[in-house]
């Protein structure tokens, strides 16, 4: 996999089949994301790829959570392809990373989803169990 990763996507850790870390960069000049690297955590269910992986951004000293109206400040991502209804087993780690790169590239709003503060404070559900409502087809 190391040999042919798309530009701006890097494998950080893939020690076992349950959890991987990937770093992504946005390659164009979008000022919201310039010079930043974001870290993604993939968790694979036993039935992967029949079922979607759980994918979240993780925050540490060198990796912020990117601004986006569909990314909560705790790293949880609202994207249809990661949801039960939008997932397809022909997706893979690489295609998910590229989709997230493109989701960021196209964004111009330095915003969090509505209700971010409450969600981050009170949500106890795993991302895969949250029923997101997909109403915005512009991203």
């Amino acid at each position: 996999m190391h040999d042919h990763l798309p530009p701006g996507v890097e494998l950080v850790k893939a020690d076992e089949f349950t959890e991987w870390l990937m770093d992504i960069k946005v390659l164009d000049d979008n000022p919201l994301y310039r010079n930043e690297v974001y870290r993604l955590k993939f968790r694979f269910p036993n039935s992967y790829p029949i079922e979607a992986p759980e994918v979240v951004f993780v925050k540490d000293d060198t990796h912020p959570i990117p601004w986006h109206p569909h990314i909560y400040s705790n790293g949880i991502i609202c994207l249809d392809l990661l949801d039960r209804q939008g997932w397809s087993p022909v997706h893979n780690v690489e295609s998910v990373c590229v989709s997230l790169q493109s989701m960021l590239t196209g964004n111009t709003k330095k915003e969090r989803p509505p209700g971010d503060e409450n969600f981050v404070k009170y949500n106890t559900q795993r991302p895969r169990d949250i029923n997101f409502l997909f109403h915005d087809n512009s991203v």
């Binding site: 079922e51 039960r84 209804q85 997932w87 397809s88 087993p89 022909v90």
Partner: peptide
């Protein structure tokens, strides 16, 4: 076996994973 395990999932809606 791969396509059958996908089609058994309710969320597949019995659609092709490539072209839906």
């Amino acid at each position: 076996h791969c396509i059958f395990s996908w089609l058994r999932q309710e969320s597949s809606q019995e659609k092709c994973p490539m072209c839906r």
